[in-house]
Design a protein around this nucleic acid. Structure first.
Lengths: 346, 346
DNA sequence: TCACTTGTAGTAATCGTTTACTATAGTAAA
DNA sequence: TTTACTATAGTAAACGATTACTACAAGTGA
């Protein structure tokens, strides 16, 4: 590895002090004669000068890096979030360090530490860890944090959440409005707050309508994996269909699972939506590519990423920003997997 | 922002020199008496000491960061690659900076610069830029680079490629072996080497079998977007079906596009695979969730990420590692979207 | 002429760590 | 007793960049 050019090298070549070089190359407002300025810029260019951010940031004691911790980048939901974060970060000359916690609290803490060592100025985190002690401690030390997606039950944490409860309610309500009364809910393990909220939303809607809830919950707790979700959807559907009378509609806690539901129903020659309607959750793109196109609840993932990054940048600027807790609203994406059965006998 | 604890603070508290603190806290092999060592560790813990990597890496002139530049993280193919990279990186105490070039050469160069300023020790890049001058220049300066997915036609660049040509050939051959002779190929714009290679693979296979190729190419050049690919697949299918006699099989250059093909066929009440067979390309998970499950070509994306990171780490270690150019082999994922029409009249 | 200001450039300390040297005391060998 | 070594700890100079000071010449006004 060749030794890279530094401002000192350039200073020597130009027969000036490194202070002057620094002032020129960092676009300081400090006055430098035009002639000298141009000469230095010329030399810098010729010698392929690349500023060393380690030095700069060490001196200025501030980096232009933000950390992001999410469960898994292969989950299309989170990759959209990150995409939004990155876009805003880049526009503001920030770079992003992305870490996959894989829903492992130990890994989450490890990354938290690594990120701090790298002197990030802010953190966007979707935390699944129950023990938030390390995180809150870092916040006390002055780390700017925005919690996304997964609510953190601590004071003084700025949050951007999805309104999972309303989303669950909305989905269930929609099915009811289409005339469905026996609505089954299939869900992965109710271990995360977000999942519990959707479930509660479903429960509320059923209760409000005076209907009997019907829930099957997966017991295996796993890292996100599209195929696993799909298979779970199939299995839970089997269980659900054991109930009698059978539901006329099935609401799944995520789109991949909904695909599994549809698949299992097709396998049994049960037509969707003619015989059973299916409601998804997430609004991933492929939902509209399958048959029938999946009616689902869209969480504004990309927008959440952009918003989180913007607000984090704001926080990092001033000390006077108020605390906030944003609730992003779900949106119903009405497609073709739900049948209107109003007015039909049973 | 509170001022963080430094080794000097700890040194003062422990009444020792900062050199000693450094030696203890960085697990140096330098001998420090057991008693003192424990005292320092104790104080470090109590005062929430977090080492400042900027200082450390500046001094040691080496960071434990690698850069990754890919077209877009929302493309599930690349998010798998990154996932693999990250996994290996973490195991080796490296962190990753991911940059989405969005297939914009200017952005690619911008990121290249940013990454260099951050003093990364290595780079994994899927480059779409035609002008590789900045990249080669950085390599001359000593940057370790591994090109993935998109071949870089320069000497001295270590590569990990997919054998796109063979993949295209394999897909076409498989259709032929199932008795298909009129095989259409639908592809997005042939502007990238990888896409051209698949196309050539298709062409070779058709030529070898003495069959007439039938290609429709999209003319719009765009950033990856699942829906766009899907729509393109539909449009190109329409065009393809204008030909007479109509093809009995359609090969699409990526899975999303294949979904579009299937969708358009269904819309016209053409059964897949009964009337027309469909071959995809990529092997994304949802391919097996749709109806019919999509037969496709799998590129080992996750494995490529792991391999790239491992080899990069090796490169960064020794100066004696040989140049390499790895060709990862495609794999046929046989599912249900292709019908065997051998022995049938016509 | 003197006192000030202005424009421009240099000096040197500093950010947090590491590490080549140096220093000291205790111990062992001669 | 002298010499030599060992174990342990401190001193101070880096790494690359920034910046509060200082320096100094030329210009300005009285």
């Amino acid at each position: 590895m060749k030794k890279p050019t530094t401002i000192h090298d350039i200073a020597k070549m130009a027969n000036v002090s490194s202070a002057t070089v620094s002032r020129v190359l960092s676009n300081s407002s400090y006055p430098v004669s035009k002639e000298l300025k141009e000469r230095i810029q010329q030399i810098a260019k010729e010698s392929n000068y690349i500023p060393n951010m380690l030095g700069k940031q060490l001196k200025k004691n501030s980096s232009n890096t933000i950390g992001v911790i999410i469960p898994s980048i292969v989950n299309p939901f989170y990759s959209s979030v990150i995409f939004g974060i990155e876009e805003v970060a880049r526009q503001n000359n920030f770079t992003v360090i992305v870490c996959n916690s894989l829903q492992d609290p130990a890994l989450e803490d490890e990354y938290l530490r690594t990120i701090m060592e790298k002197q990030v100025k802010g953190l966007i985190i979707s935390s699944i860890s129950k023990d938030k002690s390390q995180l809150t401690q870092l916040m006390k030390l002055g780390l700017n944090v925005i919690a996304i997606d997964q609510k953190i039950d601590e004071d003084n944490v700025n949050q951007i959440e999805f309104d999972y409860h309303k989303a669950g309610y909305l989905a269930t309500k929609h099915l009811q409005e289409k005339g469905h009364e026996r609505i089954g809910y299939v869900t992965s393990k109710l271990d995360r707050p977000s999942r519990r909220s959707i479930h509660q939303g479903y429960m509320s809607a059923m209760k409000d309508a005076g209907l009997k809830p019907l829930v099957v919950e997966s017991q295996t707790e796993e890292v996100y994996n599209a195929i696993t979700e799909f298979d779970t959807g199939k299995q839970l559907t089997q269980k659900l269909l054991e109930h009698s009378p059978q539901p006329t509609a099935i609401f799944a806690c995520n789109d991949m699972m909904a695909f599994g539901v549809i698949n299992e129903l097709s396998r049994r020659d049960i037509q969707v939506p003619e015989q059973v309607s299916v409601m998804g959750f997430d609004g991933i793109d492929v939902g509209q590519m399958i048959h029938p196109p999946l009616t689902t609840i869209k969480q504004p993932d990309y927008e959440m990423g952009k918003m989180a990054c913007k607000m984090l940048l704001d926080m990092m600027q001033g000390d006077d920003s108020p605390m906030f807790d944003v609730m992003l609203q779900p949106k119903l994406l009405e497609r073709k997997s739900i049948r209107d059965i109003r007015g039909e006998g049973k």
